[in-house]
Amino acid sequence: MNKLEAVYFDLDGTLIDTAPDFYTVLNTLLKQHGRPEVSYSAVRANVSNGARALTELGFGVGPEDAAFPPLLEQLLDAYEQHLAVDTCLFLGMAETLDWLETNGLPWGIVTNKPSRFTGPVLAGLGLAQRVGAVICPDHVKQRKPDPEGLLMAARRDGVNPAHCLYVGDHLRDIQAGQNAGMATAVAAFGYIDADDDPHGWQADYYLEQGSDLLPLLQTMNTGSTA
């Protein structure tokens, strides 16, 4: 890849840690329904798969069950009221975003999180006025691993996908980046299931922690970490 032109992030489990708020919201709802709590580790492992997975986890019902839609909507409504209470940037991401902006490199988000929640959580973290393209599933016809969202983001920011990096914590993220012709990096610090093997996803880079990203970007942008 030639000199870096832009960086795109998955949201939950990559740029920001939303598990604490999902843990609070889900267990509050479970308590209201007289259901036992679920562990933080179980919630964290399911966040990347969305509210549907968390509803199944907590209530033991699937999408085919008549009780599923109202429970899902209750969870979404509760989460909407508790979006950015304990959610925060992952370690090293604040410095990374500062560096990108200082160097005039756009950064954006391509996520499977609906815009109903993405916009408010970015605003709550003070990122809404800083981010470039933000692509949510309601903006595209095909979700990741289809490259539509990433290609849309690159067009909006006026950059060449071949000169971009996409960072994500799920196989579909890496596949989407590859399908878009972007370089890819696994956020191994994110919400990766214990049964998954991110080393087998064939990403270009592997980030053990969020603070590993900035040195990588400096290398990609200048050819050195100086």
Rank of each mutant, 00 (worst) to 15 (best):
S41F: 09
F68L: 06
G126D: 02
T87S: 15
G181A: 03
Q32V: 07
G13C: 08
R130V: 09
P161M: 01
T55H: 10
T118I: 08
A162M: 00
H199Y: 12
L76R: 15
E148P: 13
P69N: 07
T102R: 15
Y40I: 05
I135T: 04
L26Q: 12
T222G: 06
V159H: 07
D193P: 01
I174V: 15
A226Y: 08
Q202H: 14
I192E: 05
A154H: 02
G190K: 02
M152I: 12
V61N: 10
W107S: 10
Q74V: 04
Q209G: 10
G149E: 02
W107D: 10
H139R: 11
H199K: 11
M220Y: 05
Q129W: 06
N179G: 07
H82E: 07
Q32C: 12
P147K: 00
A154R: 02
C88V: 15
L207P: 09
I135A: 01
A194V: 11
L76A: 07
L217H: 02
L125P: 12
T87Y: 04
F117D: 05
S211D: 13
L91R: 15
S39I: 06
W201F: 02
T24C: 11
Q142I: 03
L105V: 13
N112T: 13
L150N: 04
D193F: 07
V131F: 09
Q202S: 08
L216A: 06
H139S: 08
L214N: 06
H163I: 00
Q209R: 13
Q81M: 14
A84C: 15
V167N: 03
G190F: 07
P145F: 02
L72I: 07
A42H: 09
L214I: 09
L122K: 04
P198C: 00
L213C: 06
L105C: 07
N221E: 09
Q129S: 14
T18N: 01
E101K: 11
H82C: 09
R172K: 12
N179I: 01
S115Q: 12
V38H: 09
M182I: 02
V38S: 08
P114L: 00
L100F: 14
F68W: 13
E208S: 13
V121D: 01
W99I: 12
G158E: 06
A66R: 14
A84K: 03
M182L: 10
D17C: 05
H170M: 12
